[in-house]
């Protein structure tokens, strides 16, 4: 979210600062700032139990609201549905008392740079992982709301996308609490801001578009759907996904599972030839040996594959088989 110009001074913690919670008396050692959100600042902190992320805000209302969401998630069975909540407390400083909460620290890479450095199929695989999580979230009665790359991280190995900022998570049927224009269907004139699965799936479609257009796009006066779809058709990175993106943007998928199924089938049937969008990285040497099937090294192979030139159809064929196998493996892991 863009920062408004005037903003009241929040609580500032310093590197190496030690603080003790007012209520629970737990001690935290601040290591560094990790990021700033609309409701507060997140720091990396050392605790008795190891590293954790500590978010301190100025408004007890919004911080407590986020804590409520995190608490609900800990009740939802299954892994990966948001970071786990460790502690909730207040910190007393010279400038006043501020609310904070401590959650699991999720370490990872930024999504867009990660996906852009890999091949087009990785967009699909990452989105498939994300859709699995979204489906469970929706079944639990929530919409993510402010779904965008900044709220996601690529963790691993094995590579897995995870979300870490749940500030915008809203009960289904209510109005979306927080959003970012580019990912918001209301902004594009393509739907309401009601928290429902289709709202999140629209954002998923926009994340895919964001991969090809890192600087994001701005809305036009009219025909925004046509405009977005034209942009999709103009980039080789998204060609394979255009049908899925269209259905996500028009609200044709009623739940995440349907979109996930379409994507899974699509990746299985498409050969993602790396030369299309990796032209600049092409090297003239063909390493034929790397085409040998080796179960242990296939993950590494998939990565290397995009950097390697692959004029030989054979290599592409073998590689796409490997990919299919890997996708099936990943899907198996998620289920």
């Amino acid at each position: 979210m863009r920062e408004p110009i005037s903003k009241k001074q929040g609580c500032k913690l310093y590197n190496d600062q030690r603080l003790i919670g007012k209520w629970h008396k737990n001690q935290y050692h601040i290591i560094k700032e990790l990021g700033r959100g609309a409701t507060g600042t997140v720091y990396l902190a050392d605790t008795k139990a190891g590293l954790a992320a500590l978010k301190v805000g100025q408004d007890a209302m919004s911080i407590t609201s986020e804590v409520n969401v995190l608490k609900h998630f800990s009740k939802v069975q299954g892994d990966h549905l948001g970071p786990s909540l460790i502690d909730v407390d207040d910190v007393e400083t010279t400038s006043g008392t501020y609310p904070f909460y401590v959650m699991e620290y999720i370490k990872g890479e930024e999504v867009i740079p990660f996906l852009r450095s890999r091949g087009g199929e990785w967009i699909g695989i990452t989105i498939i992982q994300l859709l699995g999580d979204l489906d469970r979230l929706h079944l639990a009665g929530w919409a993510f709301g402010d779904l965008k790359p900044e709220n996601l991280l690529m963790t691993g190995p094995p590579v897995r996308v995870r979300w870490f900022d749940v500030g915008g998570t809203t009960k289904l049927g209510r109005s979306i609490k927080e959003y970012t224009e580019f990912f918001d269907r209301g902004y594009w004139g393509l739907g309401s801001r009601k928290a429902e699965p289709t709202y999140d799936l629209f954002a998923v479609g926009m994340i895919m578009i964001n991969c090809a257009y890192p600087s994001r796009l701005e809305r036009k006066d009219k025909d925004n759907l046509k405009y977005l779809l034209t942009q999709v058709s103009q980039t080789s990175m998204l060609t394979a996904y255009s049908s899925v993106i269209k259905k996500a943007l028009t609200g044709s998928y009623h739940d995440a599972l349907h979109m996930r199924k379409d994507l899974t089938e699509l990746i299985g049937h498409t050969s993602f030839s790396p030369e299309k969008h990796m032209v600049k990285k092409r090297s003239p040497v063909i390493n034929k040996e790397s085409a040998t099937v080796n179960r242990k090294s296939y993950k590494k192979r998939v990565r290397r594959q995009q950097k390697r030139s692959s004029g030989i159809g054979e290599t592409v064929l073998v590689a796409s088989f490997l990919l299919l196998a890997y996708v099936l493996y990943l899907v198996g892991q998620i289920m």
Partner: peptide, 11 residues
């Protein structure tokens, strides 16, 4: 107009 979109999504 945007505000109206947001508020109309309320109960």
């Amino acid at each position: 107009i945007d505000l109206s979109v947001s508020l109309r999504s309320r109960t």
